[in-house]
């Protein structure tokens, strides 16, 4: 059973509030101090955005298989929300970098650099989508993009990681080393963020659906959408007499120039 949008939204808000309450009141302070707590925002956002890009690729494959515009809408909304989450990832990453290393941007954090490149690629989804007028072609090409970009994500992480000669001490990649209580808090925050992502996707899809319905109704009211009268092939007047007298006559080849 799919939960209703309302239930989902309430669950998302409740989990997020619980998660961040735990972050502020109960999770132990790391050696990095208070600013390390941005970790509970930054990493879940990044994971949700990346998983969202992969989810979009899966919807896109389904769309190409079935040609059902619903899957294209899902892929589009998934990418859209992941890009919005991506803005959050880059902002929180910058704040963290400033606090940790005194600079707003550092190049020796391969995960963040990879994320920037992925984010950049997905930003080009919008100009692509809006540069194609025909609705079906727009959907198909967007799906092709979503699949291509989905294949790009792991490849890009690999290349950027290999380009980084020294392994910088990182909080997020040392996942095995998270103390139990921090881990639990982190998982609650991740679950909350994931619920929020899903709820927002569902919300946007519902809103798009309603907007499309409204447009259709309005056009129907204004009478713009009148379907054309059905057309049926009829016997051409020049041949009516011929066909009546002799069916074969109509089929005989006409001499050249008899047009």
């Amino acid at each position: 059973m799919r939960p209703s949008l309302r239930t989902l939204a309430i669950a998302a808000v409740a989990t997020i509030v619980t998660g961040y309450a735990m972050v502020f009141f109960s999770a132990p302070l790391d050696v990095e101090g208070f600013v390390q707590k941005i970790f509970y925002l930054h990493v879940p956002l990044a994971i949700c955005a990346l998983v969202g890009f992969i989810v979009a690729a899966i919807h896109a494959i389904r769309h190409l298989r079935t040609n059902d515009p619903v899957h294209d809408a899902r892929a589009y909304v998934s990418i859209h929300l992941s890009v919005i989450f991506g803005v959050g990832v880059l902002l929180t990453g910058a704040i963290w970098a400033k606090a940790m290393w005194g600079k707003w941007w550092v190049w020796d954090e391969p995960t963040l650099v990879s994320f920037l490149i992925v984010f950049l690629l997905y930003c080009t989804y919008y100009p692509l989508r809006y540069a194609i007028e025909d609705r079906e072609r727009q959907a198909r090409y967007s799906s092709v993009f979503a699949i291509t970009a989905g294949a790009f994500v792991p490849l890009n992480f690999l290349a950027v990681r290999l380009a980084e000669p020294l392994i910088h001490p990182r909080t997020f990649s040392s996942s095995g080393g998270l103390p139990g209580e921090m881990m639990f808090t982190f998982l609650v925050c991740l679950a909350g963020m994931a619920l929020l992502w899903v709820a927002l996707v569902r919300f946007e899809l519902a809103s798009k659906g309603a907007k499309a319905d409204l447009g259709r109704l309005r056009r129907a009211l204004e009478g713009e959408d009148r379907p054309p009268a059905p057309a049926r092939a009829t016997i051409a007047p020049a041949h009516v007499s011929m066909l009546r007298s002799d069916d074969e006559a109509a089929r005989s080849p006409r001499p050249p120039g008899a047009v």
Binding site: A231, A233, T234, I235, L243, R251, P253, R254, P256, A258
Partner: peptide, 28 residues
């Protein structure tokens, strides 16, 4: 031309000439 088994669909603005050559007509 439509000879033998070869059929054809002819789109035209020129009503008279198209009809003169046609067995069937379709008015859109």
């Amino acid at each position: 031309s439509a000879t033998g088994t070869r059929a054809r669909v002819l789109v035209s603005h020129d009503r008279e000439r198209a009809l003169a050559a046609a067995d069937l007509m379709l008015e859109l």
